[in-house]
């Protein structure tokens, strides 16, 4: 018994802290990816709505990122970066891929929001003497945001959950941490349930709040 206890030991309170810390790392990488990706995505969405030619070329590129599994993108980029001379640790590589992934989805959402604001409304704004950016800031933004906010929350929650895939690069976030603990303690059900509870606790309140907000706005 003595010899085996060095390798396998039961689940302890320390491990719960370990998982909690890992959950914070999951939150950190997702918050970074969502915020940076959303800003980029909004500008991409703007570009998509400007002209047909841009929409076609840019749309095709964004489409590629949305048609290839994230896990393939992660492996691909992690192995491509050294080829072009970039030295990235798993966190940086994962973050970059997640940002690109987020911005592709947000771009489509943003385009939907911009198109939700009718052309007459925007002409009216311009004829009131607003310039292009004022029109975007004071007319398109508030109206478009309401139209696509639920969709954006959906994208953000998707990124939060998909950040679990960064574990394959070796970044110790929630899922990787639970894998490590599973190997040590051999208590798969318990640890996966705790990890699931952490994910649920991060994701469910946001999705619940977004649904409530959507209902209130639609009234």
């Amino acid at each position: 018994m003595e010899s085996s206890s060095t390798y396998f030991s039961g689940f302890s309170l320390n491990d719960l802290w370990y998982l909690g810390e890992a959950a914070l790392r999951t939150l950190w990488i997702s918050v970074l990816a969502i915020s940076i990706g959303s800003v980029i995505g909004i500008f991409l969405g703007l570009a998509l709505s400007v002209s047909r030619v841009v929409a076609f070329t840019l749309g095709t590129i964004l489409d590629i990122f949305r048609s290839v599994p994230l896990i393939i993108q992660l492996v691909l980029f992690f192995n491509f970066a050294p080829i072009i001379g970039l030295r990235l640790n798993p966190f940086e590589a994962g973050l970059i891929v997640l940002i690109v992934y987020t911005s592709c989805y947000v771009a489509n959402v943003a385009r939907g929001g911009i198109e939700a604001v009718g052309q007459p409304m925007r002409r009216a704004a311009r004829s009131l003497g607003m310039n292009y950016w004022q029109d975007l800031r004071y007319v398109v933004w508030p109206i478009g945001l309401r139209a696509v906010f639920p969709a954006w929350v959906g994208v953000a929650l998707g990124v939060l959950k998909d950040s679990a895939l960064v574990s394959i690069l070796g970044y110790v976030e929630l899922l990787k941490a639970s894998q490590i603990l599973m190997t040590r303690t051999q208590e798969a059900i318990l640890i996966l349930s705790i990890a699931g509870a952490f994910y649920f606790a991060l994701s469910y309140p946001i999705s619940y709040y977004a649904t409530r907000l959507e209902q209130r706005w639609s009234q």
Binding site: K161, A164, L175, Q179, L192, Y199
Partner: peptide
């Protein structure tokens, strides 16, 4: 509300 990968692991 949980990652698909976690569900697969389960």
């Amino acid at each position: 509300n949980t990652p698909a990968l976690l569900q697969l692991f389960f």
